[in-house]
């Protein structure tokens, strides 16, 4: 072993770190939207593995600029969907995480439902929605655990990760001159629970059971009108 080679190892690492740090500052500066990850390549000072620079430029963020804003201090957790029944067993919860954006939905298939969303700040998800809806969720071991507060009532839950075709679906449409917003949660076992709000932006929308959702066509029929649903999927970024 040459006597200076450990020092060279250290200095190469330090140079690599400084190079990446500068690239990060460039990536985090207000850049044109599109690539939510900033620079897509790693400017390696040591000529590192070619697989990094040969990969197609961001294959991940094909969704419209849904990436985190440069000034947010969000945590980039990953992508995933969670769904399951709440602790009481009376309602379902679905959570979709796409980079550091989170959308969650709680519904009992009848008159109680709530949409909440937010940024994943520091690994703990603190989400808010209309009419005082709130949720606090933490992730670990394939589970999303926490509570959602709807109409002043707190509902605890611990739901597991799910994959397509299970997950969260949403439809916003105009039916008979009224705006409606429907949400469906498809559980891991295939069971579907959905609620529909009429006039969702008002202070007291009328909420009831959602019409059954056809997963093949992603449509449902409300009041004789066919509405289309879109998946709210953290893996693909759909619905974000």
């Amino acid at each position: 072993m040459k006597r200076r080679s450990p020092l060279i190892t250290l200095l190469v690492g330090a140079a690599l770190a400084i190079g990446l740090w500068i690239a990060s500052m460039v990536a985090a500066s207000p850049a044109p939207a599109g690539s939510g990850y900033g620079a897509s390549g790693v400017p390696a000072a040591t000529g590192s593995t070619p697989s990094q620079t040969a990969a197609p430029s961001p294959s991940g963020p094909t969704s419209p600029a849904a990436g985190p804003s440069p000034t947010s201090s969000g945590v980039l957790l990953g992508r995933g969907n969670f769904a399951g029944m709440d602790a009481d067993g009376g309602a379902a919860v679905a959570i979709a995480i796409h980079n550091n954006s989170v959308i969650a939905y709680f519904c009992d298939g009848r008159a109680v439902d709530a949409w909440v969303s937010g940024a994943a700040e520091g690994g703990k998800l603190e989400l808010t929605g209309q009419r005082g809806a709130r949720a606090e969720i933490s992730l670990g071991s394939g589970l999303a655990t926490g509570w959602v507060m709807v109409n002043g009532t707190r509902h605890m839950f611990s739901v597991s990760m799910v994959h397509a075709p299970s997950g969260l679906f949403r439809s916003v449409a105009i039916v008979h001159n009224m705006k409606i917003k429907a949400g469906w949660i498809v559980l891991g076992n295939g069971k579907k629970i959905g609620s529909l709000e009429v006039d969702p932006d008002s202070a007291a929308p009328v909420t009831g059971a959602a019409p059954p959702l056809n997963l093949t066509t992603l449509t449902a029929v409300d009041g004789g009108v066919t509405i289309t649903a879109m998946p709210v999927d953290g893996d693909t970024g759909s619905g974000f």
Partner: peptide, 18 residues
């Protein structure tokens, strides 16, 4: 340092966390 939520990343992965 005020964490930005963004840093340089590597293409071909599903997310920076990955």
């Amino acid at each position: 340092h005020h964490a930005t939520g963004i840093a340089v990343s590597i293409a071909g992965f599903s997310s920076p966390g990955a």
